[in-house]
Design a protein around this nucleic acid. Sequence first.
DNA 1: CATGAATGAGCTTTCATTCAT
DNA 2: CATGAATGAAAGCTCATTCAT
Lengths: 221, 221, 221, 221
Amino acid sequence: MRKLDPIKHEAKRRQILEVAERCFLRDGFRGASISDICAEARMSPGHLYHYFKSKEVIIRELVELHLQRVASRFAQMAEKPDVLEAFLDEIGIWRTTKLKRNPTLIHEVVAEASRNPAIAETLRRRIQALRDMLAGFLREGQERGQIDPQIDPDLAAAVLVSLVDAIDSLAAKDDEKFNSAEGIDLLKTLFARFLTPQAVGLPKRAGPAARQPRDTLETAT
Amino acid sequence: MRKLDPIKHEAKRRQILEVAERCFLRDGFRGASISDICAEARMSPGHLYHYFKSKEVIIRELVELHLQRVASRFAQMAEKPDVLEAFLDEIGIWRTTKLKRNPTLIHEVVAEASRNPAIAETLRRRIQALRDMLAGFLREGQERGQIDPQIDPDLAAAVLVSLVDAIDSLAAKDDEKFNSAEGIDLLKTLFARFLTPQAVGLPKRAGPAARQPRDTLETAT
Amino acid sequence: MRKLDPIKHEAKRRQILEVAERCFLRDGFRGASISDICAEARMSPGHLYHYFKSKEVIIRELVELHLQRVASRFAQMAEKPDVLEAFLDEIGIWRTTKLKRNPTLIHEVVAEASRNPAIAETLRRRIQALRDMLAGFLREGQERGQIDPQIDPDLAAAVLVSLVDAIDSLAAKDDEKFNSAEGIDLLKTLFARFLTPQAVGLPKRAGPAARQPRDTLETAT
Amino acid sequence: MRKLDPIKHEAKRRQILEVAERCFLRDGFRGASISDICAEARMSPGHLYHYFKSKEVIIRELVELHLQRVASRFAQMAEKPDVLEAFLDEIGIWRTTKLKRNPTLIHEVVAEASRNPAIAETLRRRIQALRDMLAGFLREGQERGQIDPQIDPDLAAAVLVSLVDAIDSLAAKDDEKFNSAEGIDLLKTLFARFLTPQAVGLPKRAGPAARQPRDTLETAT
DNA sequence: CATGAATGAGCTTTCATTCAT
DNA sequence: CATGAATGAAAGCTCATTCAT
């Protein structure tokens, strides 16, 4: 009587998650109600609870899904020969093609995380995974001499992940300037200048750190 | 004798806003209820509505307050002789001292903005004001030769503002790595390398943009 | 210290009642709040309670006021030589001049009366007073031969009072047809035909009652 | 098996409307709360909103229902051979049997209409429909010579509808005198005298209108 | 697998009324 | 005489969730 369960069941779950994502994107985790989702998915509330134990579970799975998507995107970069260039290209491609149509749940997620431990943990894992992946790339790049060896890969990875998120949020507000080709170029320049090996060494502590740039400036001047 | 209002009234409003901020920080705009705020402010719900017409007004005023705070902080930077250094120091000071104790409402705000036009407008204004201010600093720096003249100040300002926001948010949650001295140094390095005048010119379009860094890399190696 | 109380006090009460009437007219007894009245009367709620013990008292006094007004209007009719004509003229004058600008609280009063015993009692008294007054007029008219002697004055008075009320209410809303000169004429005709002495006598019970008019019709035809 | 809705759903709606009518009759539109209705209907507030989007919708539907009831009652009169007699009988039957047990919402409706445009519109439509129907009857009666041809049917219809409502409100207050057989007889007399063809013609304007009755009186005297 | 009836706690907001000044 | 701060009960309504069918 229930032979085709596993497949159909999973398909339905996916479909519900997609609908839920749309709703959450539009109205937020709190703002979108189960009723809204049910209406948009053409199903009864009782039936939805057949697939998901609670609203929180839907949110949680959606966050996980997000993590997987980003992770797989990053993973593809690992196969390119020049990681840095791949990374820079990725940013460009991603911003011009995907982002405009796909606003992210990231703000909802972060906001929710601050009061929902489960979401917080998932988010932390997501960020950590991205950082680890990126740190690996950076180490590879350093070995090949493409990336400044004086940069701490773990720290830099953390910075870069933040950057990517920053760009997300910027683009959310239909910001013409930012979504232009020049905007993307500038972004690439920022990354490139940051990661490229420098003639002058990196300082170890704050004092010199604030200094060194100034030296550079003075030299340039 | 009957008109001791303006002062007391305003004081009470401030107090309510403070309590509300705490509550919203803890539970979010939607998650924190008027009852919660009233309980924490030791007042009856009816009385709160003596001071604020609606929950939304409270949220709106809180967002405005946030805007003013950030703006005034940035404004103070304008008086320092070396703007770049001031900016970098600001980031350092701010992150180590303020942020740890003062998580921000920024994510709530951004999340809310995506579905509340009033909040969205306030947020847009806030961001624009910061960008304008920063762009002004960058222009000054360029005139003094402290900042790469090839960088578009408006674009760069947009990038930097979003960066600051992003780092705030993602690192807010007790991120040891990010909040360490080294983390801050790296951040400063990033900004410095980005803004410092370069020997080699900036490319005009995407193609060369992806290219030029690599050349630099190879040269450096 | 409180010398001019009685006079000023009473004046203030009157003023409040006037404001309250406007508010109740606009929003109903339930719909208009004490705050509304206070705002419109430029006074604080605390102060209003200095003059009226409760909202209900205001409503009650307003109803009484209404009663007095109507009663005095009717009383003036008593002095006219031809009561019937005076009554008919009164209807015409009243509808064309007063009603259009002065909507009445009567519906509010009746609606409220159905659940507020105090109001119900006041209303009952008001109606009874009007009926008695009108019945008196009718008796006078009957003695003078101006009004059909076969009509029970008390019953007819009851009918006429309710008629006036009903027409007020249903025609109040910019009813062109009803408020026209022809409308008023027809109304007068109705009253005149009803009250004028008839050649044919009144039946005693329902059966003949339904009959007699038909006979009249046939006779007339 | 899953679509037994339409019937049960509608039945439940009816039931809720009945309960609501009782509550509104007792406490008024504003006075009766959703909680009251829910308590009396033995259901949770949430569930009630399954059937009605808002309290106002309940009120609106109740008003519509009223309209339909009255309209159908009037429509039945159209089939009787003698319209005037049918009308007169109708009043008698209705008052003695129905009204005593069924007080009406009419005052609530009129009071509400003065500040609720939707209700006002519904009420206006209701009144107009009744007037049109009655005007039709009157015209028929005039053609058959049963009703005074000098009376403007539209105007007279307006007057009669008011009358019917007037009687409603009178009876609301358990008025022994009015609900007696004599009261009804008097009412019938009023209608009959008004509508019956007269020997003397109707005046065209206000001046003569006030006059003519007097003439009649004097003649009678 | 699917429905939608049903719940009940909780939300934001309003309001008549009281009280300290 | 006058203010407005303060109360707290109750209003209309929403929503995640459960349950009988």
